[in-house]
Design a protein around this nucleic acid. Structure first.
Length: 896
DNA sequence: GCGGACTGCTTACCT
DNA sequence: ACAGGTAAGCAGTCCGCG
């Protein structure tokens, strides 16, 4: 195992040097370096106590990688610059003697030199000779508008040599700082020190022992070739998090009425036309500050802020902005909600407008991002907007990524409501409003014991990316990054997407859904009705497990070896390599094992101290986010290691697994009521039946099949992906039923929730009679409420549907919510993709109207009754009830 | 000219 | 900018109907 390094470049550090000092003795030293010391702005520190690697960039002036380190005792950021002379490069298949004849390459100002080396080409399972083209600066490789190396080589080669061979360039699109991280085997998020000007990884004996014990106690029977990967991940993930010193910022900008539209103008951060009138800060030490601009004709009013809030008035906007810049430059971490697109961008352009020099502005503007010269900017809007984070880390608790909605869902705290435009608030109102935004922005990083900061740190470690990038990019980038890292570590050529597609691009199955690339999972036809005592068994992380057990990856699927061709994937003509473990299989498999065998149980272990348990729970949800996407990325064209047969094989094996398990269950005499992808609903199984099935899966499939939950009873509708289940503790799961969908009118949803509540009280089959009576009443009451037009408010009748695109972009059809949206646009409202349209159904064409423009009398009650009927019928048919009979319609009347 | 059968589009959900 | 599968409602089209 020794040839495997633990994720950090060990060439600089032998085992004997492991530091054993614990933090207490380091305090003063760190503080001295920190205080009043401008090291971070001017030069690389010569020495630095243990510090967390937070971020990496390329410093254009110094022409080298710059690493930001967070020293947790002085609580400052230090920037260390590369000393190794590492340079940007890419690879090509053209030999140096030929490249030397390409003048445009050799004379390119960014060109440095050529090297030759051998790399492993996993697609062909053989070594390849490549030429490394080394450049003086990263832009020369890829990114210069007038010819960069990665374009010049394929452009010029045919001109110089005629078209005699296929020209290839590899690894030219990897960001330089990522390249630096990979090549030096660095571990973002982990602890380093600087000694004699060199960056050294730091390992504490305690930490090493902890990892060793974890491995020995829980991974003894791990496949040998995965063991070292589990070790790598465990080293990264076991190490504790620092305390993050940070400040949340929010700004308010004067925005005038526009007479023509009667609407408020939304300030454009790229113009920064209007004054910044208020800025607030909330920091991790509990400091709250509000900076206000003195303006004429502002009603003074009472400030009336809590006594612990510092209020500062500024006579000039310039002074205010200077103060803001000083604060921003004081904190290692600056938190905003949409600061990339608004707050920091506005500050930047506003400062420019007011005559600040670039070097007086601590913000670095990117095309879509704003970074900081000193510290690290985390834009929570980006992070919470990440679909995977939203779904898997926060289980869909919020829908729209607005500060208000996220805060309400996660903190139970809302923005302050204001009824006047920002510009008309008194100082007190403005200060309170602005401060509240900073408060909740900060709390979004502090709730649940700093969950979000820790999650970011964990993802930084897994992905091998700077924290700034992790917080802004999607899960496929995280996965790509740690896979690229592994290529470099193993001396593998990172294939181009086209290379993979050319050799292994074809899928062989037919998707059920038109337009999809391959067949997916199986959904078992449900046995509709009420069933008591239902155990739901499921395979733990089925797809990642399949990728592990069946060795799936771009190199192993359809591998070049004739002797592997008999290792078939069921239901497909594909085969899988028997000789070498694919990189993806190893990385995903080991992450899966670590999550299932270590982090998940530890997160639930009540015997552990709360803080430790909390850390385990953070790690397990970080792993969940990554594992849940780990199969999908192979079927996503945007993924750099896109390989559709890998995704197809995963799904095909999944189908094979679930069908065989159903057969086995029936063979064991268990009735299977329903199943979806990786789960089985079993009716009243005995302990021993469950055990037998689980053991069979372990032995025959090498997969873990466990009881996930037990329902006191379930109500299965006849439709797939639609059911309701009451757990033993009385809590209720409602899946897929219209009654729980977000877009339906509140009036219908409330009636449905009432029914849920009533159903959750049912304990035995005998209780059902009473419950059914009550449910009939619930249905009848809501029907009568509609029929008699007795709703409290039109809002109760609003459908809320999200625009998938701008209203004008619907060309094929015009759905109802788009009709309503168009009416709103005619009134001057601007609508875009992602906006929610609230509308009601009315009698007159076009049958819909935006809620705010409709009145009670025009509501088309029959449409609502139809909707009520179809919503309830999904459950009623399983309960043996009929909607029409309940509301008192006779058979005959139905046809009238 | 109109209704029913059908397909396609769109959204929201499940795993 | 991770995948495919399912349900529902509605828009739009085609066809038959003396």
């Amino acid at each position: 195992m020794d040839e495997f390094f633990s994720g950090v470049d060990k060439s600089n550090l032998s085992r004997g040097e492991i530091l054993q000092k614990e933090d207490s003795s380091k305090g003063q030293e760190a503080a001295q370096i920190g205080r009043g010391n401008e090291l971070s702005e001017t030069s690389s520190p010569r020495t630095l106590p243990p510090s967390y690697f937070i971020s990496a960039t390329y410093d254009g002036k110094r022409r080298r990688a710059a690493i930001k380190l967070y020293e947790p005792l002085s609580r400052r950021i230090y920037t260390w610059y590369d000393t190794s002379g590492h340079m940007p490069y890419c690879y090509t298949n053209i030999p140096p003697e030929e490249l030397e004849k390409i003048e445009r390459l050799i004379k390119h100002p960014g060109f440095d030199h050529l090297e030759t080396l051998e790399l492993y080409d996993a697609l062909l399972d053989r070594k390849v000779k490549v030429t490394k083209v080394v450049a003086k600066d990263p832009l020369a490789i890829g990114g210069l508008p007038r010819g960069c190396i990665r374009d010049i080589i394929p452009e010029e080669y045919p001109k110089v040599f005629g078209d005699k061979r296929e020209v290839k360039v590899w690894e030219a699109a990897i960001k330089y700082y990522q390249c630096y991280i990979y090549d030096r085997g660095l571990a973002p998020g982990m602890v380093y020190e600087v000694k004699d000007g060199e960056l050294l990884p730091l390992w504490y004996e305690k930490h090493e022992k902890n990892v060793k014990r974890l491995l020995e106690e829980h991974f003894k029977d791990e496949p040998e070739d995965l063991y070292k990967y589990v070790e790598m991940w465990a080293r990264l993930l076991e190490y504790p998090a620092p305390d993050f010193r940070r400040v949340a910022v929010d700004i308010e900008v004067f925005s005038p009425w526009v007479e023509a539209t009667g609407l408020l103008r939304v300030p454009d951060p790229r113009e920064a036309e209007y004054q910044i009138i208020c800025v607030s800060f909330v920091d991790s030490e509990g400091l709250k500050r509000v900076l206000l601009l003195k303006r004429e004709d502002v009603k003074e009013g009472l400030l009336d802020l809590p006594p612990n809030v510092l209020v500062e008035f500024y006579n000039s906007e310039r002074d205010l902005i200077s103060a803001v810049f000083r604060t921003i430059s004081d904190y290692p971490f600056v938190i905003t909600f949409n600061g990339d697109d608004f707050d920091l961008r506005y500050l930047f352009h506003r400062a420019e407008r007011l005559g600040f020099n670039r070097d007086e502005i601590p913000i670095e503007l990117g095309r879509n991002i704003c970074l900081l010269k000193y510290g690290v900017h985390i834009d929570l809007y980006r992070f919470f907007g990440n679909r995977s984070i939203q779904i898997y880390a926060f289980s869909q608790k919020y829908r729209n990524t607005t500060l208000d909605e996220v805060a309400q869902a996660l903190l139970g705290k809302a923005k302050l409501e204001i009824t006047k435009p920002i510009s008309e608030l008194t100082y007190g109102e403005l200060a309170r409003y602005c401060l509240r935004d900073s408060e909740i922005t900060f709390e979004l990083t502090s709730f649940n014991d700093d969950l979000v900061m820790k999650l970011l740190l964990a993802l930084t470690r897994i992905s091998r990316m700077p924290m700034e990038d992790v917080s802004r990019q999607g899960v496929s980038r995280w996965i790509r990054s740690f896979m690229q890292y592994e290529h470099r570590r193993r001396g593998m050529l990172i294939p181009n997407k086209e290379d993979i597609i050319a050799v292994k691009g074809k899928t062989a199955t037919k998707a059920i859904i038109k337009g999809k690339k391959y067949k997916g999972a199986i959904v078992v036809e449900p046995k509709s009705g009420v069933h008591f005592n239902v155990a739901v068994m499921d395979f733990q992380s089925l797809y990642p497990s399949i990728i592990k057990v069946h060795n799936l990856g771009y190199q192993s699927i359809l591998c070049p070896h004739p002797e592997c061709r008999d290792n078939k994937v069921p239901d497909t003509p594909h085969w899988v390599c028997k000789k070498k473990r694919a990189l993806e299989s190893a990385l995903i498999g080991s992450l899966r094992d670590l999550r299932v065998r270590w982090y998940k149980p530890k997160a639930k272990d009540k015997g552990l101290p709360k803080e430790l348990r909390n850390w385990y729970s953070v790690i397990q949800s970080a792993l969940k986010v990554i594992l849940n996407a780990s199969y999908g990325v192979f079927g996503a064209e945007t993924f750099d290691l896109y390989c559709p047969p890998v995704a197809e094989a995963t799904a095909a094996i999944g189908r094979n697994v679930i069908t065989r398990t159903i057969d086995k269950a029936r063979e064991l005499g268990i009735e299977v009521l329903y199943g979806d992808t990786d789960s089985l609903f079993l009716k009243n199984p005995t302990e021993s039946q469950i055990e037998a099935l689980s053991e069979w899966a372990e032995k025959e499939l090498q997969l873990e099949l466990d009881v996930d939950k037990v329902y006191r009873y379930t109500v299965l509708s006849s439709r797939k992906k639609n059911y309701l289940g009451v757990l033993l503790d009385g809590s209720i799961d409602v899946k897929g039923l219209t009654g729980k969908k977000r877009h339906i009118p509140l009036l219908i949803k409330k009636a449905f929730d009432e029914m849920d509540k009533r159903l959750s009280q049912v304990k035995t089959p005998a209780d059902f009679d009473e419950a059914l009576k009550d449910i009939r009443k619930i249905v009848r009451d809501s029907y009568m409420k509609l029929k008699r037009r007795e709703w409290d408010d039109l809002n109760e009748l609003a459908f809320e549907v999200v625009l998938g695109k701008a209203p004008r972009a619907y060309h094929k059809t015009t759905p109802q919510h788009v009709k309503a949206a168009i009416i709103l646009e005619e009134k001057g409202e601007e609508l875009k993709a992602g906006d929610t349209i609230r509308f009601v159904k009315v009698v007159r064409e076009p049958r819909v109207k935006p809620v705010k423009m409709a009145s009670d009398v025009e509501i088309d009650v029959d449409e609502y009754i139809k909707y009520l009927r179809s919503t309830f019928e999904q459950v009623l048919d399983a309960l043996g009830l009929e909607f029409d009979e309940i509301i008192g319609l006779t058979r005959l009347e139905q046809f009238m």
